[in-house]
Design a protein around this nucleic acid. Structure first.
Lengths: 248, 248
DNA sequence: CTGCGGCTCAATGTATACATTTTCAGCGTT
DNA sequence: AACGCTGAAAATGTATACATTGAGCCGCAG
């Protein structure tokens, strides 16, 4: 079959199919999702559809309708800003906690190694940047940061927030086409990574918190740029298509 | 029937029954919950049981087992501390946002009115405090605070955190029996309420954030007191019985 | 004794029929 | 025209039978 996304259970296939349709913006915010229709569409029964919707509600992409059933959660421009703010606040907190409570040498070495490898993606030529490697290592950095204070509570909350497609740490990285123009942004981000790790290692809690917040703010600047100047670029940012267009 | 908790659907009854058992500590953290057993126990079919478990996973009281099914989430002492820290950070953020972005006069008047009514629970005699009214108005204050910046994103996150029984703003309020000893604590809390509203109205973002964090810290102090000195009091704090006892 | 293989049972995954609730169009009344 | 009633269609809630998976047990062979 063509669109066989391949997964073990029907629930998983329904989950992935639905998530993709939502993040691609095919289902506008507020759309009521009907189990029967979805089940027929996916050629499965209502049971796994229901299960998939329930998991998407946990992820925050759907919300339960008061009278039962689910509807697509609508994200306005302001909601995206707030979600990025939220990520900044949470990352700031884990940075502060790691500095205040201390962290294991192993974890500190791990995140330092990630920063070192991020240095490697910048080639000698100004235009040489391994974009894919940067994106991947950047995600690793943010995951390692979340794990630094050893608090499952915060690690879990951050994972939840980052699971929203536009709140992923790599969501607003410049795409390959305009990469040279953004090389400087990446370099600044990398500098912030370095200082953040230094602040944590030096037990400077307030500085670590401020740096992590500022670092997350870069995403907001890119978002504002895209929406104000290069609105056509919206489609190049993963998951930004589900943002309600009218409300700007 | 005796334990008819009264709710419209079987799902809701199962939800409430399960939630109660978990928060009362009858099901230790890590306990695997089997659909069949639970269904037989509640005299209903597997379907509403499954639905109820799914909702409890959203609430954060259950987690999905890797191989399918659910288990009771285990909360160690450190997890409770972190959750209170999380509430403080989030309340600090909504306070700062309300100060930075401003808020509507109506909302400001509403929260001011709640503070005014909180003043009323302190009688003329030192021992006169209407505990129940304080607890109720205190919850209202924290709900109003969460709504101040008009950010559904943050309001939602805070509601999620506060739904954990031990993270509710009123969870660690002194119980009636030792109320006179804690009258001063309540008065200090009320003073913080007042200053917090003043900081927000005066657009002092940093001060508002710091005050809200400090205010949430009172819960941590009470938690530490209970676990270190008055461990027998654990049963008097709603939802504290589900905290794993061994790990202190 | 130890390790491997398959058997068995229990648990979750799935489909489906039926029950209940919600919704809303249609219609009558005021 | 606005309101509310009503009944039928559609959607979710529920029970249950069956399918599939996976973990543990048992016995056999080395």
């Amino acid at each position: 079959m063509a669109s066989q996304t391949s997964a073990k259970t029907h629930t998983m296939r329904a989950l992935m199919a639905l998530r993709q349709r939502i993040t691609k913006g095919e289902l506008p915010g507020g759309t009521r999702l009907f189990e029967v229709a979805m089940a027929e569409d996916l050629q499965i029964s209502r049971t796994p559809v229901r299960e998939a919707m329930s998991r998407l509600a946990e992820e925050g992409l759907l919300e339960r309708a008061p009278s039962g059933g689910f509807m697509v959660r609508s994200f306005a421009y302001a909601d995206v800003l707030d979600t990025l703010e939220l990520r900044g606040v949470l990352e700031g907190t884990v940075a502060r906690l790691a500095a205040e409570r201390g962290t294991s040498d192993a974890k500190l070495r791990e995140i330092t190694e990630i920063v070192r490898r991020l240095d490697g993606v910048f080639g000698d030529e100004p235009t040489e940047v391994d974009f894919e490697a940067y994106s991947d290592l950047n995600s690793q950095f943010h995951d390692a940061l979340a794990a630094l204070p050893g608090s499952l509570t915060f690690e879990r909350e951050l994972a939840r927030v980052k699971s929203l497609p536009f709140a992923s740490p790599s969501a607003f990285l410049p795409n390959e086409s305009r990469l040279s123009a953004f090389r400087r942004s990446l370099a600044i981000g990398q500098e912030q990574h370095r200082e953040l790790v230094a602040a944590i290692a030096g037990r400077e809690g307030a500085r670590a918190e401020a740096l992590a917040r500022e670092h997350a703010l870069a995403a907001r600047r890119n978002l504002e740029y895209i929406f104000s100047t290069e609105h056509s670029e919206v489609t190049t940012v993963p998951g930004l298509e589900l943002v309600a267009p009218a409300e700007k």
